[in-house]
Amino acid sequence: MTLKRMTFLQHLLDFMGLAGRLHLEWISSAEAQRFVATVTGFTETIRRLGPSPLRSAALRRYDNISAAPVPCSGPASLQPPAMPDSGIQIANG
């Protein structure tokens, strides 16, 4: 069950651009070495991926949109909304 859900979630997160940051593994308390290898390996992967984009998202920065922002001459209501400070803390995101 957990396996199904986690696999599903890995695909869903990838769809919205967050891949490789979720990992599932069963390790028995007797498998210390496997635990070390898994945690070390995953830590390396995360380091390679760099800081989570959720952090910069929390700071309301959207830098990766390739289309150059086109000045919008319409009424203020058409302007992309200013990102309000939501006070979100994504400490464990």
Partner: peptide, 27 residues
């Protein structure tokens, strides 16, 4: 420019680079 076009296909939504996909969904 900034968001996700509701009329696009799933395949189209999947082709953008991950970082852009993420920003567009977050927008």
């Amino acid at each position: 420019e900034r968001g996700q076009d509701p009329n696009q296909s799933l395949a189209q939504a999947d082709t953008l680079p991950r970082a852009e996909r993420f920003d567009r969904w977050m927008y």
